[in-house]
């Protein structure tokens, strides 16, 4: 029979997020590998290539998506392990969760900063 369910909490959403982000990452990272290692070669990729690539908003958003999805997917996986093997309400669990959130926020901000403050024209005349 049809029964509407309104689940408590967000642990099920976190589980669903892992599946969705995994599929997205697979597509994005395969695309990244194709461009960097198949179409081009790491032998020919230089500063000019990267600068040209990051000049378009499309690739900045593409790279930002990889950054955000990979970081959150990996850290959410670690959070699952921490919650499996630490006691609820304990100091270790709290410490680990604070560390994971800090690492996630710092690296997301740092990566986004590099992606969006990068100005290829500033290096053009060199």
């Amino acid at each position: 029979m049809e029964t509407r369910v309104r689940p408590n909490g967000w642990e099920w959403l976190s589980w669903l997020y892992m599946r969705v982000s995994a599929v997205l990452l697979l597509l994005l990272v395969l695309g990244h590998l194709y461009i960097m290692h198949v179409v081009n070669s790491t032998d020919t990729i230089d500063f000019a290539f990267v600068a040209q690539r990051l000049a378009t908003p499309f690739w900045r958003i593409y790279d930002l998506l990889i950054l955000v999805l990979a970081l959150s997917h990996g850290l959410n996986g670690l959070r699952g392990i921490v919650n499996d093997y630490t006691r609820p309400g304990g100091g270790w669990r709290l410490a680990w969760n604070v560390a994971l959130w800090t690492v996630g926020l710092v690296f997301t901000l740092l990566g986004a900063l590099v992606l969006f403050s990068f100005d290829p024209t500033a290096f053009a005349r060199r």
Binding site: P7, N8, G9, E11, W12, S14, W15
Partner: peptide, 9 residues
């Protein structure tokens, strides 16, 4: 079951 200690563990 949708809570932290339920099916998704």
């Amino acid at each position: 079951l949708a809570e932290r200690s339920g099916a998704f563990k």
